[in-house]
Design a protein around this nucleic acid. Structure first.
Length: 480
RNA sequence: GCUCCCAUCGUCUAGCCCGGUCUAGGACAUCGCCUUUUCACGGCGGUAACAGGGGUUCGAAUCCCCUUGGGAGUACCA
């Protein structure tokens, strides 16, 4: 095991977003590629928005995607607990340490005062940074206020110096000094604030590489200061470009399906979704498009991230899903189809062999398993409605002759108690019509097709007809 | 406002770091042809991009600067 330790640190404030899934998979891939450790940390310090229910969903979505982790809430390692709400004492302890070392201080400013200051700064077109009012409070005064239970936050004394982030995808990003004022690290309710606990946890959990969305680039400045205060060398950062919607804005709910659950419910095949996600902002060294998680980790190079934001292309994602379906074992494919077909559908009454043949036949035409339903419905629909081109075929003088013959054959088989026409028998019909009735070419094939299926188009007749229940065929040819 | 980031076909991207092999490659989408007496699959081919302007250089998609356009951040959210 190499020394590499990465983490995915979602907040359970909603369903797992595909952007989050992308971040997660890159971390996963990097840990696999380096033989490192992948840590899952739940950042639930926002009491109001964090829900345990979301955490459960998050975990199951990750599992569905096939992203596993080495340490996390349900996989305790030596750096736990992995839920921030269970680490409150730790944050408190270290915050106090910072106060003792004069690197942080108690602040008693109220929300109203703060807002006023911000507005003032805005008016003067200055950066809205905290003015440091409570910085100079005397020790006794602080003790008195604390004893009086006046709500207090703990603010970090921002360092007055330039900071340069060494980022594997951005290069060197320098933030000039004075960008941030003294920021809150502990809320008045005793909960830590993101930038502080995130950095502290990364330190405590010995994270070596932080791979996350570009929206955190700015946060890195504050986090760097925390590393500084604790005298710890910061990890290597990789800030990924964001996923955007049609309007080129950061991908959010209003862009349609953005949660992993949406895709699961929409019958996407997880390995395909993951494959597509990996390709959004990263490219395979050999320019491969289709690869498994395992293959990706083998060729995973952290230097191959794209800097510009990527637009999620539903069309291509679906295409990729189709590619995966075509490579699937029939058994697996049938298993997936089973789940998407309505319970009362005649499909479920058919034999396994029939299901497999149907699956094999139609997988070529679909990109998602649920897209097979219309084809299935076609197979079982007894009253056919003829469209324009089909009516034309019906009007041919040869068609009634074929119909008469077909009626006889189908009736005979029905009397015999058959459920389906065998492929050879069906071929025999064609031959008979050709030889004995003298009908051939387009007249023959189209005539049979329209009579038997009601349409001028569809899959190969000799595959479809043997899969269509005889009684359905019967109804179709006897229909006037 | 301020700070930072980004900029190759409609979309995802290769190439950029280490200028010439780039008349810019691949994939999705799209169009055409072949195949299939239908549809689809498949095969073949086409349309389609270095944001603009300046430099540097014998030579720039590649290096530098500016402009424009887009994005992100600027909380007791994460």
């Amino acid at each position: 095991m190499s020394g590499v330790r990465v983490r995915f640190a979602p907040s359970p404030t909603g369903y797992l977003h595909i952007g989050g899934a992308r971040t997660a998979v890159y971390n996963y891939l990097y840990s696999k590629a380096t033989g490192g450790t992948f840590v899952l940390r739940i950042e639930d310090t926002d009491q109001e928005r964090s829900l345990r229910e979301y955490e459960d969903k998050l975990l199951s979505d990750l599992e569905w995607l096939g992203i596993t982790y080495d340490e996390g809430p349900s996989r305790p390692g030596e750096f736990g607990p992995y839920r921030q709400s269970e680490r409150l004492e730790i944050y408190k302890e270290y915050a106090q340490k910072l106060v003792d070392e004069n690197k942080a201080y108690y602040c008693f400013c109220t929300d109203e005062e703060l807002e006023e200051k911000r507005n003032l700064a805005k008016e003067q077109k200055a950066a809205p940074v905290y003015d440091g009012t409570c910085r100079s409070l005397g020790k006794d005064e602080v003790a008195k206020k604390l004893a009086a239970k006046i709500p207090a936050t703990i603010r970090f004394k921002a360092y007055e110096k330039d900071y340069t982030i060494h980022d594997t995808v951005r290069g060197e990003v320098t933030y000039p000094k004075g960008m941030v004022g003294d920021f809150v690290i502990m809320r008045s309710n005793g909960f830590p604030v993101f930038n502080y606990c995130c950095a502290l946890d990364d330190i405590l959990m010995k994270i070596t590489n932080v791979i996350r969305g570009e929206d955190h680039l700015g946060n890195t400045l504050r986090q760097l200061m925390i590393y500084d205060a604790f005298n710890v060398k910061p990890p290597t950062f990789s800030h990924l470009s964001l996923l955007v919607g049609e309007d080129r804005q950061k991908l959010s709910k209003r862009h349609g399906s953005t949660s992993v659950a949406n895709y699961r419910d929409d019958h996407y095949y997880a390995p395909a979704l993951i494959n597509y996600l990996i390709l959004l902002g990263w490219s395979h060294p050999e320019e491969k498009d289709i690869f498994s998680l395992e293959e990706a980790s083998r060729g995973f190079n952290i230097n191959r991230f794209s800097k510009s934001p990527a637009l999620f292309d539903f069309e291509k994602c679906k295409w990729m899903n189709g590619e995966y379906l075509k490579k699937l074992d029939v058994e697996k494919l049938v298993g997936m189809i089973d789940l998407t077909i309505p319970k009362d559908h005649l499909y479920h009454e058919q034999s396994m062999r029939w299901k497999q043949e149907v699956a094999t036949l139609y997988v070529e035409k679909i990109n998602k398993v649920d897209e097979i339903l219309p084809y299935l419905d076609l197979l079982f629909s007894s009253n056919t409605e003829f469209d324009g081109p089909a009516k034309e075929v019906l009007a041919w003088e040869t068609t009634p002759k074929i119909k008469k013959f077909l009626k006889g054959e189908i009736e005979a088989l029905t009397i015999k108690g058959e459920k389906f026409v065998k492929a050879e028998e069906f071929e025999g019909w064609g031959n008979f019509i050709k030889k004995e009735l003298g009908i051939k070419g387009k007249n023959l094939f189209m005539g049979m097709r329209v009579l038997l299926t009601g349409s001028v188009e569809g899959s190969e007749l000799k595959s479809v007809i043997p899969l269509t229940p005889l009684e359905i065929l019967y109804k179709r040819v006897y229909q006037e």
